[in-house]
Design a binder for these strands. Sequence first.
RNA 1: GGGCCGCUAGCUCAGUUGGCAGAGCAUCUGACUUUUAAUCAGAGGGUCGGGGGUUCAAUCCCCCCGCGGCUCACCA
Length: 440
Amino acid sequence: MLNTSGRIAAMRKHGKTVFCDISDSTGRIQLFINKKNLDDTGWELLGKLDLGDIIWVSGSLFVTRTGELSVRVVSLVLLVKAVRPVPVVKTDAEGHVHDAVSDPDFIYRHRALDLMLNETSRNRFIARSRIITAVRSYLDSDGFLEVETPVLQQIYGGAAADPFVSHYNSMDDQCYLRIATELYLKRLVTGGIHRVYEIGKDFRNEGVDRTHSPEFTQLELYEAWTDYEGMMSRFESIVQAAAQAAGVGPVVHYAGHDIDLTPPFKRISFVPALHEKSGEKLFEWSTERLSGLVSSLGLGDGINERPALLDKLFDHYVTPGIIQPSFVIDYPVELSPLAKQKADDPGITERFEAFIAGLELANAFSEQNDPVYQRKVLEDQAAQSQHRKGVVDNEFLYALEVGMPPAGGLGIGVDRLVMILTGAASIRDTILFPYLRREQ
RNA sequence: GGGCCGCUAGCUCAGUUGGCAGAGCAUCUGACUUUUAAUCAGAGGGUCGGGGGUUCAAUCCCCCCGCGGCUCACCA
């Protein structure tokens, strides 16, 4: 005799015999319900049950003549009535799913139904959780300390993005939701936490598309006594651990490509790749000429900042073709204000961005720890900024001035990693409750 | 923000050169004691995203709006 409960997923009535499938997070089992095994109350209740109702049953296990493990029900209790109709999804003998709830608007707004009915979605979020657990486990076992830094910040930084602005009533103070954790985590490296990481939400006040969400989960890690080469190894290891946790790899199929996650990943040098793919020596062009090209390619008008132009052209010519896991290295210094320059070429930084399937998954560099140089870069940047004229994070610079050990830093877009590993076409499919416009 | 596409029953979708709104599943009634997309017979179910316009007549054509998707722009 056993007791179990679950949500009614299917019901096949045959007069005085009824087959009913119930499911919970541990699985699905068939109930064999026969009038002769139930009292009248139970039998009467059975007639009123709908798909989606949650019931409790007791009975004995047996195998039907078609070989299916079932519960011969002797007692039946309604635990929860589904007062709103639950859509019916059926899977036929060939495994084809019929009437799957697929309207994206419906799925994002009614995630409860999506998870209840769509196995793909349910499995994706389970995989996401396991991926994050595996990444934590990898870092923890290698001596990294997980920390939490402020989400509410008086000075935001660590990335070039517009913030969400808020207001703290009690102190009558304007504050911002963080756009990155970088500048706080580096203070911890100075403080002697030489292996440190945070997994958390960053918020960027920008448009939404297939690969961007206004709130997204980022892993940032910092490690003293290493550099961007060390971060490449970390990235490769993290991808390995994540893929294993997701139950995929070493080759994953994504967006029509077979992607081999086996390290080492390819390295692509920024300027040569840009020159090769564009067929022009763009890096030697004047800013005015670059601006004209960007404009004529329809990539944006009126842009006259050299870093932005180069970045845009790189994204246009090179990025889409990077399918296999690759590190783009040797970024021009103008694109990388927080990165350390190469000893033998101050125009190039010790930095990489990691790409898979044309998606930017990570950004990393040997951290700039020269306080004089860093202050100059940030102050110059602040002087040019329209929104934050003259605002510099002096506490961050103070930490550099005290002396930050040489360190590598790595930021990984967790949602995008989950996309690749779970075959999600949109970042929204990896976020349980993506931001949607209000319903009228 | 621009362009394109979509919005019809609880779910998935048809549909009409503009003429009473359709199917499958779900729901309700009935039949059926080993089924598994159960089957069979019958029934109910709609502001055709919202508003305006054209028309004898609009779910369909036109305009405005809403929501969503793709895409471009924005995006260290």
